[in-house]
Every structure is written in structure tokens, then in C-alpha cells.
Design a protein around this nucleic acid. Structure first.
Length: 881
RNA sequence: GGGCGCGUAGCUCAGCGGGAGAGCGUCCCCUUCACACGGGGAAGGUCACAGGUUCAAUCCCUGUCGCGCCCACCA
């Protein structure tokens, strides 16, 4: 016997264990089933489950469970990401607490400590994914820095280098002066900052009476100025082109050049050029062969290239000192408040400095061509479609990808340097030695490049490296390309695009057929969840309180495409209630002896009620299946919610009650079977979204040895839909609803029983009243039914349904005025409708141009409305007289 | 500056060419034997605004206003 309420906490752990012990998540490469593959977006080993994970993994699990039930060999490939910067930061912070830095330990020892940390805490998120119910094939769990994946990384690096698609270059990079590493363009975020625009006068060499005004938001960079640019067509500066400026403070003579980069509208119209510290200036400098003078060290403090009194100053201190010096010299024209955007490191949160260094770059432009084509041709489908535009916009303008990082935790770059700086990119040190010997003609000492690769480099290989590449494994052959990739739209560029590049390059095949991108989970006000705002909702708290299924159902139901996803606890609570509802419906079955009948054939049912339920359920199953196929998770969830609560519980079970308790044993037996069959089918349909609850009910209610997770997805033919049964039960539902509404509006005491008088009922209605009299009496609190009265007593409330009028005599309690008002309102509504329809029907163009069936439909609607209005009008008249 | 998207019931959002929908909230009634994490009922909307296309527009097009997000931008 089931408990009175569903208690998720006890149940979830047990079923998860059953699934794992039963090997239910395992892919079956040996089977002849068609594979269905999803690779998980590997969470950071440092991570713990947040709402984004909860959403992302719920959706993946829904699809995996759905396709598994549909008979596919489902592989959900799990694993974690070493998350270079994030992980290094975590361990460094721990060391910091002990007062040691990674440099105290040395590289080798530090890395050992990170592995140690990983062994202890790295599994947190995997445990949390289990609590969510994720049915990953855990035996296949991978890590981006495990042996096989590391080998894959080295191989791709070496091959891309051989193909000229990875190269070393000295140019400006985004330098993070806190983490002391280069970062890629994507890791830079712009923030709007309130600052100032300083207008400085630069004296012209040889023209003591003249100066040129430049404007800057970063006065300290003037220490590295090597030119001033003006627009070639700007008359204000025409005579100064070719002259030189005597740079104050530094006393450097620098040229005034004409360059179209200079915008006459901006600032003073003349722009100072600092090639070593600005991406645009770097280009201008290159065009005019300007000197590149780097004035910052790696900490963004002033270096020895600047005058001695500035050396060692932090960039902001240097800024103040430069401004003070200009003021002292009387060379400040003016200072304006100015809002502008400044680049910040997404991890460190400090302002990024464009800094001249040598780094490794991937030729992304070349690698992007095949992905662009794949998306354009539709061989990779992106959902929602609108994201395609974003994808193309980025891919069409893609810049070289800086992949080297000055960190310790990650895949060390397989490049070895000889004594003269010549380098050898090889799979291992031995190969590098051999190459070096061939190059130098003797053995030399080699030093390995100290840098590691961007974390996203190894993630880019994920769909094939996890399946065994570079070995040509059977798994790789069977499960690649994968079917769907589900991830947040915020990592479309970071990860998705790069998987396409690497997959198409190394596998010569797309990594996945479909990319499903979901939005960001925010709080209920649409605010991004963050520690500082204190608005974080921890999914584990919700799981503890409402159960994993309630959370999963919520995620599925709000996963509408392309929006930000606002989560409210209230919704989760509501969905927990839904779980309880189904729980109790099953309990009802149990209490009433509705047990599944082996070999039950829905097509053999005779009762209209059975046929109705079966048909409705068949339609629901079709909708749910279609929604799942089209990744419309919200439709899937909402369809099931509506059917289970609104149709099965609210109506079907209520209709079933009297039959189950009635005299007719044959009918009772059929209804028992249909009721149980309905629950069984619903458990199947709901399982991908609510696996724990449904598995529990399946075990308790259906019994047997098998587990629901491995059962077949319901397939109910459209032939089970019975239009006659739908019309008949639909009529019954409307009649009962109408009577209930009238009772409530007229304040009839809930317990009072009223007679029902029916006028002008045709033969079919009379037959229906006969068939469903007991139900009507029970559900609408009706006493006797007189199906053929000629007149209705004064003081009755009247309801018009199809051809018949139903009256509830309420002489003693009826409020005449209220009833007149109700009828008038109804009539008013009908008048409005008739007016609208007449507008169409009286329009010759409508008759001529609209499809015939639309015209017919409007005519029918009009007839119905007119007839109903007439009956209501009669009722109103009777009330008045 | 370039791009994308959104303005529908008090709130959160579905719907997207021919009868305005859901959940939550609100109000009224009901402890009836699956469920008060429940049952029954009700109120509430010129579908942002202005034009246009169409026989017909919440839905398509254009513009305006308001709000998000992404990319670029340190004069």
C-alpha cells in the first residue's frame, strides 16, 4: 500500500542505486540497436552543481531516457574538464591561506598538489549529477587531462603545427596582469566605466608657438607614445603632417602622421599613438613604421623604458603622476568626465592590458571554413535558428585564437627550444631530441616551452577524444558523430564552434547533427544569479526540499527556446504538488483494485468512457512524442501536466468511481483495466522528465522484475481515437461544468441536491442523460432528472447546451436580479460574437476569397450562437415575467 | 556603432493569419471515502503604440517607444 504522500528523499537514492546496479545507463555497443549519443558539456572539476547545470543536464537526460525507451543504444558520455585557470586559482588560494605561493613549491610539486586536490574534491559535481538523476554511462567517465585525452591534445597540436595551422607570433595580446597570463578575446569582457578624457598639449618641435592637442583616457600610456596621428583630410592639422612633436616628460621626438584611423569627430581630432599598448595603435604604428616602446612590465607597472621617476609605479599611480606633471607644465587643455568601456579579465576581474608578447596561435580563420559550410548547408542544425546569425557573424570575422597560457595546470605545449631559440614541436621529448639532432647535427640541450594550452583547446576535442581518438576504436566508429549537443548559448563560441572546427578537421566529419542552445538561468526577476547579489538558488536545496523530479519537471517546463530562464521556487513547489497528484492517482488505483491486466488490448474496450480515455491518451502520447522529437521540452512537460491533472484525474477518475463501485461487474472490470492501463502508460510517458517518481510507482504498482527505465516508449495508434466517444464525453464534461458554475454563481449550498429539468432534448441527448445520469447526479449534485419537460417553472436557472435547455428550479433561493444579470452577460457575449461573424459573412470579399471551409465554419458558428441566444433570451423573458 | 531578441491576465510565460491560453497569485464555496501538496467556481486582457499587406492580423511587413542580450569600441 502506498503512503499518503510522495516522499522523494527516501525514494531517489534507492532507485538510482537500482539503475546503476542494473547497468541501466550503460551503452550497448554490442547490440544491434541504432546508437544515440550525447556528450556531456564537461563541468569544471572545481564546480558544484548550479542551476545552469541542473537545466542543461535535465534536458540531456530527458532526451537520453526518451531515446533509450524508444529502443536506441543510448550513450550519454560523461566527464569533467580540468578548467585550467579556475582550478589553478582554487589550489593557489588554498596555498595562499598557508602563506605559500606556487613558486615556493615549484612547478612539479604544485601540479602534484592540484592532482591531489582533484582526487579529493574533484568528484563533487559528479555526485550531484547523480542526485539530479542523470543517466550517464559512468563507467566511461573521462577527464580532459587523463592519459588518453592528453595524448589526443598533444597529437592535435603537433599535427596542426605541421599543417601550419598553429604558429608562434609576437604581437599584442590581452594580458591579465593579475593572473600573469595571456587570455583569448573571448575571455575578455567589456565593462562600462566612468572616467575622464584628458586633453593634453603636445609642443611641436621647431614651432615654439604651436602645439597639438591629443585626448586620452589613459594618460600613463603617453610614456610609450611614438607618434601622433591626424586625419589626412583634416584642415586643422594639414600643415602639421610630417612635423614632429616633442613628447613632454619623456622628451622624445615623435612624428605627426596622417592616418585614416584618426577620427576628426573624436576627442581633439588628433590621436596619440602608443603601438605597444593599444591594438589600433599597433596597426597604425605598423603602417607608419613607428617605434614600439613597451612601458609596462607583466604586472602592469611602469618598466625601465620610462623616465626613472615613473619606474615601478602601478599603472594607476603612474596615471596620476603623469596628469600632475602635465598640470605642472601647464599643458592640460581641459579634462572632461567620460564614460567608456574597458576590457576586464573574466576570471581575474582586473583591467586587461594589451601587451606585446610571443604566443601560440591557432589559425581559426582556416579552421572555421568547414563549420561555416556545415551550418549553412544544414548538416549541422542549430536550435533556435536565430542563433545561426550570431554564429556566422562571429565565425566570418574570426581572429587567430591565442592558445598559450602562462599557467602550470593544463596541457604543456609540446615545443622544445634549442640553444639558439629554434624550436621543435614533437609528440614527446625523444622525438624533439631526434629532430634537434637532425637540425644541429649534434646533441643539444633542449628546454620545453613552459606554457600550457587554453582549457578550451582540449574541450574542442571532446566529442571524439572521449571515444578513444586518436585510436580508431570501435566506439569512435559507432558513436561519432554524436546526435545532439545541448549547452548554454553563452559558450557557443568558446566551445561549440571550436568542436566543429576540430571535429571537421581531424575526423573529417561533423561532431554532432544538432546543437540545442538554451538560455541562462536567472532568478525570478531575471537577474543573473551571483554570490554578490545573494540571489543564488542552490539546486540541491530544491532537490532536498521538493525532490529531483520536481526540479527536473520545472526545468523542462521553462526551457522555452531562446529566452532567459527565470526560475522561481514557487514553480518547483507547484510541480512537486503535481508529482503528489500522480502519486495519489496511482494510490487511487491501488485502493480500488485497478491492476494492470497482462495482454490488455485498448482496442478491445467497449465502454464509451474507456474509448474516450484511450483516445485522449493516444493523442497526448503523440503530442508528447512529437514535442520530444522537436526538443520542445516545455510542450512535453505541459502536455503531460495538463493531461494527468486536468483530464485523467479531474474527469476520468471521477467518472470511473461510480462504475468501479457499481453493480455492473463487466463494466467495472473494464474500467479497472483501463484505469490501470492509463497509469501505466502515463508513467512511461512521464519517465524521461520525472524518472524517480515514475520508477517508484512502476515498481510498487506495476510490479514485475523489469525497471521502467528499460521499458518501451508507448506507441498508440491514431485509430484508438474515437470521435464519437470524444463528442459524447465532451458533452458530459460541459454539462457538468455548466451546472457547477451556475450553482456556484447562484450561491447554491455545496451540499444541496437539485433536480434537473430538461427541455427540447433530442433522442441522443435523452439517451446520454440516461447513460450518464448517475454521473451527472454525483458530480453536479443533482437529484432527479426529468429529461422531457414541456415547460420550466418560474424561478429556474437555465443552461443551454447544444439543442437542449437544462433548468435548475431554484425558486426559493434564486436571486432574480443576479440570474438576469448572468443571462444578459451571456447574451451580450453571444451578440458580440454574432456581430463579428456577420461582419465577415456580409463581406462579399470574404465569401469570395476565404476558403470554403472557413466560410462554412463561420456559418455554423453563427447558427449555433443564434440558437443559444434565443434560448437564453426566452429564459430571461420568463424570469422577468 | 553592428547583430539578435522581447513587450499577451496582478506576476512568470505559452500561442504566432480565421473563436484570447496555462501556471502561480487574488476572491468565493467545500475537510465528499486517491490527494487540503486537495476539490468546485469566479474575476481579470483595445495581445506596447502608429501605419501598411490581407477577405481576415495578437500573429506577416515598416516605423516609433520601452526593455534585455551578444559582438565591436580604452581619443
Amino acid at each position: 500500500m502506498l503512503e499518503k504522500t510522495y516522499n522523494p528523499a527516501e525514494i531517489e537514492a534507492r532507485h538510482y542505486r537500482r539503475w546503476e546496479e542494473g547497468n541501466a545507463f550503460a551503452a550497448r555497443p554490442e547490440s544491434n540497436r541504432k546508437p544515440y549519443t550525447i556528450v556531456i558539456p564537461p563541468p569544471n572539476v572545481t564546480g558544484s552543481l548550479h542551476m545552469g547545470h541542473a537545466l542543461n543536464n535535465t534536458l540531456q537526460d530527458v532526451l537520453i531516457r526518451f531515446e533509450r525507451m524508444r529502443g536506441r543504444d543510448a550513450l550519454w558520455q560523461p566527464g569533467t574538464d580540468h578548467a585550467g585557470i579556475a582550478t589553478q586559482m582554487v589550489v593557489e588560494r588554498q596555498l595562499d591561506a598557508q602563506g605559500i605561493s606556487r613558486h615556493d613549491l615549484g612547478r612539479e610539486e604544485f601540479i602534484r598538489r592540484v592532482w591531489e586536490w582533484k582526487a579529493q574534491s574533484g568528484g563533487t559535481i559528479i555526485g550531484q549529477l547523480r542526485r539530479l538523476g542523470a543517466s550517464c554511462d559512468w563507467a566511461r567517465e573521462r577527464f580532459t587531462m587523463d592519459e588518453g585525452l592528453s595524448a589526443a591534445v598533444i597529437k592535435t597540436f603537433v599535427e596542426l603545427h605541421r599543417q601550419g595551422l598553429i604558429f608562434k607570433d609576437k604581437r599584442l595580446v590581452n594580458w591579465d596582469s593579475k593572473l600573469l597570463t595571456a587570455i583569448s578575446d573571448l575571455e575578455v569582457e567589456s565593462r562600462e566605466v566612468k572616467g575622464f578624457l584628458w586633453y593634453f598639449r603636445y609642443p611641436i618641435d621647431g614651432m615654439p608657438e604651436r602645439h597639438i592637442v591629443v585626448a586620452t583616457t589613459r594618460p600613463e600610456t603617453m610614456l610609450g607614445d611614438t607618434g601622433v596621428a591626424v586625419h589626412p583630410d583634416d584642415p586643422r592639422f594639414a600643415d602639421l603632417i610630417g612635423k614632429h612633436v616633442l613628447l613632454p616628460i619623456v622628451n622624445r621626438r615623435i612624428p605627426i602622421v596622417a592616418d585614416e584611423y584618426s577620427d576628426p569627430e573624436k576627442g581633439s581630432g588628433a590621436v596619440k599613438i602608443t603601438p605597444a599598448h593599444d591594438f589600433n595603435d599597433f596597426e597604425v604604428g605598423r603602417r607608419h613604421d613607428l617605434e614600439v616602446i613597451n612601458v609596462f612590465d607583466q604586472h602592469a607597472s611602469i618598466n625601465d623604458n620610462a623616465p626613472v621617476e615613473y619606474r615601478g609605479l602601478d599603472r594607476y599611480a603612474a596615471r596620476e603622476k603623469v596628469v600632475a606633471a602635465f598640470e605642472h607644465l601647464g599643458l592640460v587643455e581641459k579634462i572632461e568626465p567620460h564614460t567608456h568601456t574597458v576590457p576586464y579579465g573574466d576570471r581575474s576581474g582586473v583591467a586587461i592590458e594589451p601587451w606585446l608578447t610571443e604566443q601560440w596561435y591557432v589559425d581559426a580563420k582556416t579552421l572555421a571554413q568547414k563549420p561555416i559550410e556545415a551550418v549553412r548547408s544544414g548538416s549541422i542544425r542549430i536550435i533556435p535558428e536565430t542563433e545561426k546569425r550570431t554564429f556566422f557573424q562571429w565565425m566570418d570575422n574570426i581572429q587567430p585564437w591565442c592558445v598559450s597560457r602562462q599557467l602550470w595546470w593544463g596541457h604543456q605545449i609540446p615545443a622544445w627550444y634549442g640553444p639558439d631559440g629554434h624550436y621543435f614541436v614533437e609528440l614527446d621529448e625523444a622525438a624533439a631530441q631526434a629532430a634537434a639532432k637532425a637540425h644541429y647535427g649534434r646533441d643539444v640541450e633542449l628546454t620545453r616551452d613552459a606554457d600550457v594550452l587554453d582549457t578550451w583547446f582540449s574541450s574542442a576535442l571532446w566529442p571524439f577524444s572521449t571515444l578513444g581518438w586518436p585510436e580508431q576504436t570501435a566506439d569512435l566508429k559507432r558513436y561519432y558523430p554524436t546526435d545532439v549537443l545541448i549547452t548554454g548559448k553563452d559558450i557557443l563560441f568558446f566551445w561549440v564552434a571550436r568542436m566543429m572546427m576540430m571535429g571537421l578537421h581531424f575526423m573529417q566529419e561533423i561532431p554532432f547533427h544538432t546543437v540545442y542552445l538554451h538560455g541562462l538561468v536567472t532568478d525570478e526577476k531575471g537577474q543573473k544569479m551571483s554570490k554578490s547579489k545573494g540571489n543564488i538558488i542552490d539546486p540541491l536545496d530544491l532537490i532536498d526540499k521538493y525532490g529531483a523530479d520536481a526540479l527536473r519537471f520545472t526545468m523542462a517546463s521553462i526551457a522555452a527556446q531562446g529566452r532567459q530562464i527565470k526560475l522561481s521556487t514557487q514553480r518547483v513547489e507547484g510541480n512537486r504538488n503535481f508529482a503528489t497528484k500522480l502519486w495519489n492517482a496511482t494510490r487511487f488505483c491501488e485502493v480500488n483494485g485497478c491492476h494492470p491486466v497482462p495482454g490488455f488490448d485498448p482496442a478491445s474496450c467497449k465502454l464509451t468512457l474507456s474509448k474516450w480515455l484511450i483516445g485522449e491518451l493516444a493523442q497526448t502520447a503523440a503530442s508528447v512524442t512529437e514535442a520530444a522529437e522537436q526538443f520542445r521540452f516545455n510542450d512535453m512537460a505541459n502536455t503531460l501536466y495538463g493531461f494527468i491533472w486536468g483530464t485523467y484525474c479531474d474527469w476520468f477518475l471521477e467518472f470511473a468511481k461510480p462504475v468501479l463501485q457499481g453493480e455492473d461487474q463487466e463494466a467495472a472490470a473494464e474500467i479497472r483495466a483501463v484505469t490501470a492501463w492509463g497509469i501505466d502508460r502515463l508513467l512511461h510517458l512521464l519517465h524521461p522528465i520525472m524518472p524517480f517518481l515514475t520508477e517508484e510507482l512502476y515498481e510498487k504498482f506495476i510490479g514485475g522484475r523489469s525497471m521502467l527505465i528499460g521499458e518501451a516508449w508507448p506507441q498508440l495508434p491514431a485509430s484508438l481515437v474515437d470521435a464519437g466517444a470524444q463528442a459524447e464525453i465532451g458533452w458530459l464534461v460541459r454539462l457538468i461544468s455548466d451546472i457547477r458554475a451556475v450553482r456556484s454563481e447562484m450561491n447554491v449550498p455545496a451540499g444541496a441536491t437539485l433536480p434537473l429539468l430538461v427541455r427540447e432534448a433530442n433522442a441522443e441527448t435523452r439517451a446520454r442523460l440516461n447513460r450518464y445520469g448517475a454521473l451527472i447526479k454525483r458530480l453536479a449534485r443533482i437529484g432527479d432528472i426529468d429529461a422531457a419537460v414541456a415547460t420550466v417553472p418560474t424561478g429556474s436557472v437555465q443552461i443551454v447546451l447544444e439543442e437542449a435547455t437544462f433548468a435548475l428550479p431554484l425558486a426559493d433561493i434564486i436571486d432574480f436580479a443576479a440570474e438576469r444579470a448572468r443571462l444578459k452577460k451571456e447574451i451580450g457575449k453571444l451578440d458580440g460574437e454574432i456581430g463579428k461573424i456577420d461582419g465577415k459573412l456580409n463581406n462579399a470579399a470574404f465569401i469570395a476569397k476565404a476558403p470554403a471551409e472557413v466560410v462554412d465554419e463561420q456559418r455554423e458558428r453563427r447558427e449555433e450562437a443564434v440558437a443559444t441566444k434565443a434560448r437564453l433570451g426566452r429564459a430571461l423573458q420568463q424570469l422577468a415575467g
